[in-house]
Amino acid sequence: MRILILGAGKTGRLVAEVASERSHTVRVLASSENANASALTPAFLKDFDVAIDFTTPTAVVANMRACLPNGIRMVIGTTGWYGQLPELRALAAQHKTALLYGTNYSIGMQMMLKLAKEMTTTLKDAGYAFTISETHHVSKLDAPSGTALTLRDAVLATLDLKDASPNNEIVITANRTGDVEGIHSLIATGTCDRLILTHESKSRRPFAEGAVRAAEWLTTHTGVYDFHEVFTEL
């Protein structure tokens, strides 16, 4: 498979390493080479089967607008752009290609989301209040993290609440420190005890491996997918 990696940061470079280990042909395109998706011309894109994006919330939308009309399947690891998901979903459908997005490509984190739903289901009628804490490295641009928002939405859905309006608020505490890869906790506080469900990433490798496996899966699919809906199929 011919993979284009968009973004040459720590995660992008690791994605390229994992893809090479899995015998794929890889080209890494740094943001400095691709201002406003200027490098993503039809002539350039014809050499690739799928693109994996780990750039920034501002760059990723331009990248999708360039790749999807050229039939390039895309795996998006960048967060902070979901307000424009309807537009990009329509673009992928219009050009009969595929788009897979996710806030976290770690299989362990996907299991935490499942456990969070079970925890919330069990405790929601027992007087527990739910909060979320997340910690990431200082260079992470969005706060709270996309993963924390996904965790919040999973809890809200389990509580039968449609959104995080003031009356249904689940407080998210976002911390930025050092080079922390990612720690997410769901805290359930009762009158006499407290339960904490935590996922801690020790490195970026689980994200990279999940993204490459997602790209492999996507080459035989058309449509728009959230990673948590398909991770068990990889």
Rank of each mutant, 00 (worst) to 15 (best):
F44R: 05
N104Q: 01
I183R: 11
I107W: 02
F54G: 02
Q110E: 12
G178P: 00
H136A: 07
I132P: 12
A148Y: 00
L159H: 03
A51P: 09
A154C: 11
E33S: 14
A62S: 14
L141T: 12
C192R: 11
A143C: 11
F207A: 01
S165E: 07
L234P: 10
A188M: 09
D47Q: 08
S23Y: 09
T191R: 09
I3G: 02
V28A: 11
K46C: 10
R194C: 08
H136T: 15
G146Y: 09
T150A: 13
N168D: 12
F54W: 12
P206V: 00
L100Q: 07
E33R: 09
A215S: 11
M74Y: 06
D226A: 11
T25E: 14
H95L: 02
T11F: 08
L141V: 15
L40G: 04
A39M: 10
A19R: 02
G80C: 07
H136G: 03
I183E: 13
Y225D: 02
V224A: 12
F54R: 01
H184K: 06
L91D: 13
S20Y: 00
T97K: 14
K96C: 06
M111K: 14
L113I: 04
A35D: 08
E134I: 01
S139N: 13
H199C: 01
S201Y: 02
I5W: 03
L115E: 12
Q110V: 00
V155G: 07
K202Y: 01
R27F: 06
R65L: 07
R205I: 02
T189Q: 14
K46L: 08
T219K: 13
T191A: 14
L29K: 05
L4N: 04
A8I: 00
A35E: 08
M64E: 03
P144Y: 05
P166D: 08
L45G: 00
L186C: 07
Q94H: 11
I196K: 15
G127N: 06
E233R: 06
T191W: 01
M109E: 04
T78N: 10
R204P: 01
V230T: 12
I196C: 12
T122G: 04
A30M: 08
R152P: 00
R73S: 14
V224K: 04
D163S: 14
K117S: 11
S201N: 08
N70S: 09
L161R: 09
G102K: 01
E17C: 05
M112A: 08
S20W: 01
